[in-house]
């Protein structure tokens, strides 16, 4: 069974609102195609159809207004009871590289895996915390002796507003 259409045009903008990272930051991970494939593989087609139908409405009704859009997401998409917890699983996926239901269902911690090796490396929780994933993107000898240098973590979410 397949979804009634391809939702990649909606996946990035709704991911941006869900994660707080703008679409450019999300695309820069190189994970967009992998993650879209993950959600469509791990959920029923009807769940995906319903979720994106609602997501499209939320984005339209929100009209790029931050408070309004967030309020709609909080009531229409975010609750764990909605769409098999898809919104929260999408957030966890971008932040950690894990498909949470698979990790939670693993027979042991040793057998719990990320979506892919690169999904771990591209996890956005490290960026949010002004650091890098341990074991990758190393910042160089002695860099830890100073506060991190990088783009300000509180950058305005301009491209989210402009996303649709």
């Amino acid at each position: 069974m397949t979804t009634s259409r391809n939702y990649t045009d909606l996946f990035l903008p709704i991911s941006a609102w869900l994660t707080g990272f703008d679409t450019t930051e999300l695309q820069a991970t190189g994970m967009t195609a992998t993650y879209y494939a993950t959600i469509t593989t791990k959920n029923t087609a009807s769940c995906i159809d319903d979720f994106f139908a609602q997501a499209e409405l939320v984005l339209q009704e929100g009209g790029g207004d931050e408070d309004k859009t967030n309020s709609l997401i909080a009531s229409q998409l975010f609750p764990t009871s909605c769409y098999n917890n898809l919104a929260q699983n999408i957030i966890t996926m971008w932040y950690t590289g894990e498909w949470a239901p698979d990790v939670n269902a693993a027979p042991s911690l040793a057998e719990a895996h990320n979506i892919s090796p690169n999904a771990y490396v591209q996890g956005l929780m490290w960026t949010a915390a002004s650091t890098h994933p341990p074991g990758a993107k190393q910042p160089g000898y002695g860099s830890w002796a100073d506060p991190p240098i990088g783009p300000p973590v509180d950058a305005p979410l301009t491209s989210i507003s402009n996303a649709r």
């Binding site: 609102w17 994660t19 967030n70 997401i73 949010a128 915390a129 973590v153």
Partner: peptide, 24 residues
């Protein structure tokens, strides 16, 4: 942590910029 901070943030109803800010 910080994976547990993500899941705790979600459990507290945080998403989007609020989640990112709370981790930061």
């Amino acid at each position: 942590a910080p994976g547990s901070d993500v899941s705790n943030g979600l459990a507290a109803g945080k998403f989007g910029k609020a989640l990112r800010d709370s981790l930061a």
